[in-house]
Structure formats: C-alpha cells, structure tokens
C-alpha cells in the first residue's frame, strides 16, 4: 500500500493527543489535583494537528464536510463524527474548570472526554481492520495495537507533562507509561509474527477456473503506471523490513521504556516522547507498506 505522509502524521499525532486525553480524563476522575486544564489544550492541539493533516490526503477536500453522512456503515464517517463531537466537550471542560463549576460536573466532562477520545482511536483502527481486501489489516490485532500504541504514547506524554506541571504525581505515570509501552511492544511483536503467515485469496480464486494450476501474468494491459499500481503496488524488500522493525522496537518502545525507568527529569523525558513519535511514524509507514491488497494478485504479485 502507498503510505501517504499526511495519513501517517494524522494517525500518530492524533493517537498521541487522544491517548493523552484518555488518560487525563480518567486521572481527573480519581484525582482532584490532576492538572486537567492545560491537559485539555495539549491533547486538543495534538488531535487538531492530526485531523488537519488527514484532510491533506483528500483529492477533493471541498466535500470533506459530507464525511459525517454515513455514520451507520462507515468507520471513517464514525471517526469524523466522534472527532467533531470532541470539540464541544473540550470547550465545556475548559469552561467548567475556568469558571470553577461543581467538581462532580467537571469530572463527568473529563470522563466523557476520555471515553470519546478512546472511541476515536478505536474508529481509526477499524478503518483499516474492517477491510477484507487487505489480509495484514483484517485482524483483531490491528485495533488492539492502535489502542495500545495510542494509550502508551498518551501515558508517556502524560509522564512528561506531569514532570513539568505536577512533579509529585509523576512517578505513578512513569510506571503506567512503561507498563503500556511494554504491552504495546508485545502487541506489535505478535502482529509482526502473525502477518508472516499468509492465507487468503490466491491468484487461483481471483481468476477462477482452476484450483491449483500455476498462473503466470503475461501482460498487465498497460505500459504506463496506473492508479491501482501507485496506490497498492508500493512495497519494501523483505530483507529491508527487519531493519525497519528493529527501528520501531528501539525508537518507539525500548528507548522510552529505559528512560522512563531511569529518570524523572521532564526535559530528558521529552527525548523519550520524541523517540516514541519517530518510532511510531516508522511503525505506521511499515503498517502501510507491508499491507498487500488483493488486487496485486491480478498484477502478478502472488505473494499477496
């Protein structure tokens, strides 16, 4: 699959923001002292950057407002609707805290923000996981991975944030972030193991007629490139893939975990956040280029 940079930035950045909002909302429920006010802004800004980036991959963005129309069937539509619903909640949350409304009311808003944020991450993951045409995506590990990565990034950002704003609460968040980074690492390792075993449509079921005879592409029917090849043909050599996976493990998970265990200095934890962000960009890029759409079967790629 072609990996559009805008989509990589969108899913990773919004994952950070939404994961952070998810944890912050829950933290505020149990801890009156949690600095929720600034957290709403940080989470909201990150999510907004992500959502704006996502519109750059549209070929016809003037119709983007119509994307809320098919809530009943489309995960992309659901993601859009929930994302837009998040803003009034964030605004109410800010208002409630700055006007010092009843604490119970503030907490209800925080919980709603948390639930909605996590729902959006789930919707994003289901955009990919619902596609039967892409074997590497059509699996329960995909939503699990997206949730774990969003929540671990959010917790890591939270540990860093608390180091600046409320150092006395920071240590429990460091443990939380480290635990979720380990879980996310395991989830990703399971995923990489699982996609190594192909099963699904073959060239034989694609062109029918035979069940096992060999099929060789003689002529693809065009000389120049086509949309189908540009969108679905992109892939990386198998020998290169291990290198990128190692980069994901080290940048996104191992460096942040080690830093979380060893230090509490928020400036140094920023390095962990940046490493995690860059690692997840590589992870998301791999998520696309390792995905093999079944239409490639017709173009002679039988490894799909």
């Amino acid at each position: 699959m072609h990996a559009a940079l805008s989509v990589l930035i969108f899913t990773v950045t919004a994952g950070f923001g939404l994961g952070f909002l998810g944890w912050s909302g829950m933290a505020h429920l149990f801890n009156d002292q949690y600095p929720m006010f600034a957290a709403i802004f940080i989470g909201g800004i990150l999510t907004t950057i992500g959502l704006l980036a996502s519109t750059f991959h549209l070929a016809n963005p003037k119709n983007a407002w119509r994307a809320f129309n098919r809530f009943r069937t489309s995960w992309l539509s659901r993601e859009g609707v929930f994302s837009v619903l998040l803003y009034p909640l964030l605004a109410l949350g800010v208002l409630a805290i700055s006007l010092d409304w009843l604490l119970a009311g503030q907490k209800v808003l925080s919980v709603l923000i948390a639930l909605l944020s996590i729902s959006i991450i789930y919707c994003t993951s289901m955009i990919y996981a619902c596609l039967k045409t892409i074997r590497q995506w059509h699996n329960a590990l995909v939503p699990i991975n997206f949730m774990l990565m969003g929540l671990s990034s959010g917790a890591l950002l939270g540990a860093c944030y608390l180091g600046f704003s409320a150092p006395e609460q920071q240590s429990s968040w460091q443990i939380l972030a480290a635990v979720f980074l380990v879980l996310a690492l395991i989830g990703k390792a399971l995923y990489y193991f699982w996609i190594g075993k192909p099963a699904g449509p073959t060239i034989n079921t694609a062109i029918g007629m035979t069940t096992q005879a060999s099929v060789k592409l003689l002529d693809v029917g065009h000389e120049g490139g086509t949309f189908l090849q540009r969108e679905f043909g992109h892939k990386v050599a198998t020998s290169e893939i291990m290198k990128y996976r190692m980069a994901v493990y080290i940048l996104a998970f191992i460096i942040p975990i080690i830093l979380l265990i060893l230090i509490a200095n928020p400036y140094l934890l920023l390095i962990a956040v940046i490493a995690n962000y860059l690692g997840l960009l590589v992870e998301r890029w791999l998520f696309f280029v390792e995905a093999r759409h079944v239409v490639n079967l017709f173009h002679g790629d039988q490894s799909t």
């Binding site: 070929a59 119709n63 992309l76 955009i127 596609l131 045409t133 086509t226 969108e231 239409v295 017709f298």
Partner: peptide, 17 residues
C-alpha cells in the same frame, strides 16, 4: 471527497481516482 477509501475496499481494482 476523493479519500480513496472505497478503492481500498474493492478487491477487483474497479475504482480509480
């Protein structure tokens, strides 16, 4: 809106942007 999502869902390569 040209998001390409339908082309991802189609196994037959029937949709082209």
């Amino acid at each position: 809106m040209g998001c390409n999502y339908c082309s991802w869902a189609c196994p037959y390569g029937a949709r082209e942007l």
